[in-house]
Amino acid sequence: MKKSKLITLFLGSIILLIILPFFGQQLVSISDVFSQNELQYVFVHYRLPRVIISFLAGAMLALGGLLFQSIFANVLATPYTLGISSAASLGAILAIYLNLSFSLGIVDSPVLLAVLFSMIFVIILYLISRQQKIFETSKILLLGIALNFLCTSIVLYLQFRLDYLNSFKIMHWLVGSMQNISYEVALLMLVVAIICLPFIFLKRQELDLLSLGEEFALSKGVEVKQVQWLFIIISSLLVGTVTAFLGPIAFVGLIIPNIARMWLGAKHSVLIIASFLLGGMMLSLADLFSRVVFAPVEMPVGIFTAFLGALFFLYMVLQKK
């Protein structure tokens, strides 16, 4: 049963990855791909990497969300709750605000600062909870929410201080959209995903136990604190990378793991793969939608996912078990 569903997801992902690049404001035909025209250029240099990036981004966000829901034993937890994405936003926006223009290969200053800030954020969170001896996850979440608001207020302040053009640039960034399209970005994201996946899969039993609550996991022999921090770091790496390149794309990390869980049950041996594939499919489809619906204007994909996500969130909250 579950196996066949996983195979369906896997095949669906492959089919999507193959056919999506042909769709867009203009349909590309197979013969175009093998000719030397403009459409071929669009297909190879724009559409293909974009589909790969949106797929990986969705997959990584869903995975990051799943990890947070599991380690906090809360189906409504996401890395955004803890403020990782607003830390990343703060980094990127600080780079725009200060007009920093250094870069490291493909990685320009906003991206660099975004990753840096999300990592620093996690380290600060870790140090505070260590120093203050805060070990209950609910308190760590509260701490994260407080730091989240702190980052957000600074972001808003910076936006307030800037002129119209830069302010709009920031707003565009904050919504989350596909601006950084290149094979290098796709490759970098793929590398991060490939590094994180085996770790997650190896610890699937611990994730099962943690998702039933830390008290329960501890009683069954999980080194709860170690595993929790390992996954806070891994999921901020996943989410920080995506946020750095594409901005904070809302709600994918919340919705996808929940849909996967409803469909396939809660066991992580299945859930990890399902969330990854489903997240990829959802975001690459959402991206196509946002490219096409208001053509020739392109809607930032974050608006669309936020809209879907908010509706889904309502459904989750109102749903009675």
Partner: peptide, 29 residues
């Protein structure tokens, strides 16, 4: 912690679960 759990089985006070595991999966876990 894992060695402890192979010598002492500890049952905490009533816990509420929110994840949809089946009884079978729960026992396997």
């Amino acid at each position: 912690q894992k060695e402890i759990a192979s010598i002492i089985g500890y049952m905490p006070q009533k816990i509420l679960f929110s994840m949809p595991y089946t009884v079978r999966e729960f026992l396997e876990i």
